[in-house]
Write a protein that binds this DNA or RNA. Structure first.
Lengths: 196, 196
DNA sequence: GTCTATAATCAGATAGAC
DNA sequence: GTCTATCTGATTATAGAC
C-alpha cells in the first residue's frame, strides 16, 4: 500500500535549476504559464523531472514563494536600517519585481487555497516590520502620528507601489507621475533630499 | 476553404447564461477556473456550447470584461454625480466586487496579450472620469490642488481599495482599520459627515 | 539517488448532425 | 439556427528502469 513514488533530494542541483526557472517564468509570463512542460523546457530538462522533485505543482509554487519572500524580508530589513528609512523603503517597494511577485502570488492564491495562509503570513511579516521601523523613524522626524500613523504609511506604500506596477504592466501611466511627485515631496519634507 | 464552423447568435439565451456563469465563476475561483468544461457545468450546459458561442476563450473573457466595465462606468458616473462625490466614490471603490474584478482581469492580461489593451483602455476611462469630477468637487471645497491634485486622489482611491480587497481575500487585515480611518477622517474634513 | 516510459485526465477547438 | 460527436494536444502524476 506504500506508494512507489519517490521525491528527489532537496539539495539536488536540478531542483535548484527548476526553482530558478519557475521564478523567472512566473514573473515573465504569469503563474499560469508555469506548467511542468514549459518549465522543463526553460530549464533544459524533461517534464517528468518536475514531478520527481516536487510532489505536486503546489509544492513547487510554495517553495518559489518562500525562497523569494525570505530574500525580500532581508532586503527590507537592510533598507529600513539605513539613514533614510522612508526613502529606502520607497525605493524598495517601487522596484517592479517586488510588486509583480506579490501580485502574481495573490492571484495564484485565489484558486490554490493551499497558498493562501502562507502568503498572508509573509505579507503580515513584511508589514509588521515596516511598521516597527517606520514608528521610530517618524517619531524622530516629529511627524504627527495622528495624521498619518506608521501603520498607515506602510499600507499606503504597499498599495501605491502595487497598483502603479500593475498599471504599468498594462501599459498605463495616467496619473502616475503626479502621484509619485506628491509622495516624494512628502518624503523630502520629512527626510530631506535622498542621498544616493 | 471556408470554415465549417459557425458561431451562435449574439442574443441567444444560452449565450447570456454562459456570460453570467463565467463572471460568477471568475469572481469566486479566479480566471484560471474558467474552462469550457467547468463553465458549462456551472451553466448546466454542454462544454461544446462554450465553443459554439465563443470562437475562442479569449472572446468570452473579453465580453465578460466589457459588459461589466460598461456597467461599472455607469455606476461610477452616478456616484460622482451625487452631492458628496468623494464619499460616493470611496463607497464604490471599496466595494470588494469592483476591485476583485479589476485585479482578476489585470492578472489575466499578464498572459493573454489580447486583453491588455482593452483593460488599459477602460482603466483609463475610469480614471479620466474620476479626475474630471474630483477636480470640480475639490475646487468647491477649496482643497489645495498642489498638496493633492485630483488625479492623485483618483490613483490613491484605486490603489487603497485594490490592495485592501486583495489582502482581505488572503484573510489579512493588519493596518486596514487604521488606514480606512485616516481616509474617512480626511473625507469628513472636506465633505462633512456622509449622508446615508 | 536520478531519471524515463506511460497512464489518466482535462483542455480547446471543429466538422457535421439535427 | 442550435447543438453534439469527436479529434488533437497539453497537463498532472506515478510506477518502475537505470
Amino acid at each position: 500500500m506504500t506508494s512507489g513514488r519517490r521525491i528527489g533530494a532537496p539539495d539536488a542541483k536540478n531542483r535548484g535549476v527548476l526553482l530558478d526557472a519557475a521564478e523567472r517564468l512566473m514573473l515573465e509570463e504569469g503563474y499560469a504559464a508555469v506548467t511542468s512542460r514549459r518549465l522543463a523546457e526553460r530549464a533544459g530538462l524533461k517534464p517528468q523531472l518536475v514531478h520527481y522533485y516536487f510532489r505536486a505543482m503546489d509544492d513547487l509554487f510554495l517553495e518559489v514563494f518562500r525562497r523569494r519572500a525570505e530574500q525580500g524580508l532581508k532586503a527590507q530589513a537592510q533598507a529600513l536600517d539605513s539613514a533614510q528609512p522612508l526613502w529606502s523603503l520607497w525605493r524598495l517597494v517601487t522596484d517592479p519585481a517586488t510588486s509583480r511577485f506579490m501580485m502574481e502570488f495573490a492571484a495564484l492564491a485565489n484558486h490554490r487555497k493551499s497558498m493562501r495562509a502562507e502568503i498572508a503570513h509573509y505579507a503580515e511579516r513584511f508589514r509588521e516590520e515596516q511598521w516597527r521601523t517606520l514608528a521610530t523613524a517618524l517619531a524622530r522626524y516629529d511627524a504627527d502620528p495622528e495624521t498619518m500613523p506608521p501603520m498607515v504609511w506602510s499600507v499606503l506604500f504597499t498599495s501605491l507601489s502595487t497598483v502603479l506596477v500593475m498599471e504599468q504592466g498594462l501599459g498605463m501611466s495616467l496619473g502616475h507621475a503626479e502621484t509619485i511627485e506628491v509622495v516624494e515631496r512628502y518624503l523630502r519634507r520629512l527626510e530631506g533630499e535622498p542621498n544616493l
